[in-house]
Computed example of a mutant assay.
Amino acid sequence: MEKKKILYYQIDDTLDYESDLLRQWGITDLELVQAKEGDFVEEARDAAGAVVEYQQVTRPIIEQLPQLKIVALQSIGVDNIDLDAATDHGLCVTNCPGFCSEEVALHTIGLIIDLARKITALDRSVRAGSWDPLLGYPIHRLSNKTIGLYFFGSIPKKMIPMLRGLQLSILVYAPTKTAEYLAGFGAEKANSFDELLRRSDILSLHCPLIPETEHLISDRELQLMKKTAFLINTARGRVVDEAALVRALKSGAIQAAAVDVIEDEVGAKSELFTLENAVITPHAAFVSEDSFYGARKTALAQLVQRICRNGRPEHLVNSAVHF
C-alpha cells in the first residue's frame, strides 16, 4: 500500500510523538516527513497534507499544489493562510481551537499584575543599580477597577475566575453575545467599542486577526482611553498599530502596555523594546508542555480524518470548502 506523505514544515522537535499516536490509532498509510529548510512548494509538491505554523500559504502557493488536501495548523490563528484560495481549490484548513486557553489566560493575568505592580520595570531598575520603590507611574489597587475584554471566546472565559479573584469589574465588547449571556459570567456588556475604550482601566484584546481587526487599536482608539489605562495584547501583533501605540506611550495618552505579540515577529524588532512603560514577551503566552502536545495531537487527528477517512475534519476553518 502506497503511503500518503504528510509534510511537517519548519516544525521543531522530532515526530516521535506523532508516530506513536499513529501506531496507537492503527494508522499505517501515512508517511510523516520533516522539512526544516527548503522551499515550501518544492517540499510539499507530493504531499497530501501539511502541518505549518508561520509559513504563509498564499493563493499562488496553493495553485501550485493541486494534490494537497489539507493544511493543519498547530495553533488557533489562521491569518497566514489564504482561506478564500483554499476554499476555491478544495483545500481544507484546520486549527486547534482552545488548545492553549488556560496558558494564554494565565499569561494575560500575569501581564496585568506586572503592569499594576511594575514588576518588570522595578526589576530592570534594580539590575541597573537603582533601588527606588517609587520608580515610574503611581501604583493603584486593582480592586474595583474595570477590565475591558475585546471579544469573549475561550481565553476570556478562562480568565473570568481569576479576574473576579482580583476584584475587577468586567466589561465585555462582543457583538454576538447578549447581555444576559455575559451576565451569567458576572460580566457587563459594552454597547459599543468606544464605550469599552472609555470605561476600561485595563483593555485586553482577544480577537483573531482578520481584515476587520487589523490595526483595531490606533491613534483614535488610544486617545479615547483613560490616561491611566493599561493595554494588554495577547492576540496578534497587527491588531494594534504599533507606531500609534509607541506615540501613545511616549506622550502619556495611556499609562503602560504589555504585549506578547508584535507586528514584526520575523525580525523581532519593535520600538516598544526601547520604552520603560512597555513589557514585551516573545509570543510565549501559549507555551506549556501540555499545550504543545495537545496541539500536535489535534492537528494530526485532523489529517487522519481528511486523508485516511476522507471525512470532514472536526476543526475545519473554511467550512464552505467542497471536496
Rank of each mutant, 00 (worst) to 15 (best):
M1Q: 13
M1V: 13
K3S: 07
K5P: 02
Q10I: 06
D16N: 09
E18A: 11
T28Y: 11
E31V: 05
A35F: 01
D39Q: 05
F40Q: 06
F40I: 05
E42C: 06
E43S: 11
A47H: 00
V57E: 01
R59Q: 11
R59W: 07
I61E: 06
E63L: 08
E63K: 01
L68R: 00
I76K: 06
I76V: 15
G90T: 00
C100I: 04
S101V: 05
A105L: 09
T108C: 10
T108K: 06
D114V: 05
L115Q: 14
L115I: 09
R117C: 11
D123T: 11
V126T: 14
L134P: 03
L135H: 14
G136S: 12
G136M: 09
Y137V: 07
R141Y: 08
R141H: 12
T146F: 04
F151H: 13
M162F: 12
G165S: 14
L166T: 04
L168A: 04
I170V: 14
P175V: 08
T178I: 06
A183C: 10
A183R: 15
L196T: 07
R199C: 09
S200F: 09
L203C: 10
C207P: 02
I210M: 14
E212V: 04
H215P: 01
I217M: 08
D219E: 13
E221H: 09
K226P: 02
R238F: 04
V240I: 07
V240A: 11
A243N: 15
R247E: 13
I254F: 12
E265I: 05
G267C: 11
T274R: 14
I280V: 15
E289T: 13
F292V: 08
K297V: 02
A299S: 09
Q305C: 00
R312T: 06
L316A: 00
